[in-house]
């Protein structure tokens, strides 16, 4: 099963302050451990929301809103995607995740499980399969 460790933004990350060398080293070391365990799928840091934008929908109407955005607790600054055998294993890796904020400051990560295809059960895709089989038989 796959989990995404989401790093929440901080005032520093939003201000475009790059992590200090020592913090970078901790983060690199943790990801190296993940990779050595064969658990790391993907990871990346995100630039500040001042470089990004949002699209808001009202039905079919869409409005583009440029960053920066202010509610920093709701913003994300990076992610690490892992593949593990159990929720407990994901929790253990998350527990080892270094504080993403600069030394001595408050930081937060959030972990979410990804949907796997089989979670979607029946639906369009399944219907397409059925049709493909019928086509093949006819």
């Amino acid at each position: 099963m796959r989990f995404m460790i989401i790093v929440k933004a901080t005032k520093d990350s939003e201000a475009g302050v790059l992590p200090a060398e020592a913090d970078m080293a901790k983060m690199a070391e943790f990801h190296e451990e993940l990779a050595k365990a064969g658990a790391l799928l993907d990871a990346s840091g995100l630039r500040a929301t001042s470089m990004g934008w949002r699209v808001k929908y009202a039905g079919e109407k869409r409005t583009v809103i440029d960053g920066p955005f202010t509610e920093s607790k709701e913003l994300i600054a990076g992610y690490t995607l892992i593949q593990v055998k159990s929720r407990e294993e994901a929790k253990e890796w998350a527990r080892r995740f270094p504080n993403p904020a600069p030394a001595g400051k408050e930081g937060e990560i959030e972990v979410r499980q990804l949907f796997e295809l089989e979670d979607f059960g029946t639906g369009d895709a399944v219907e397409r399969f059925k049709k493909m089989e019928e086509d093949r038989r006819s």
Binding site: A37, K85, S86, E88, E89, K91, E92, W93
Partner: peptide, 9 residues
């Protein structure tokens, strides 16, 4: 279960 997960790692 947590301990077993740690051990697995």
């Amino acid at each position: 279960r947590t301990i077993e997960a740690v051990f697995r790692i």
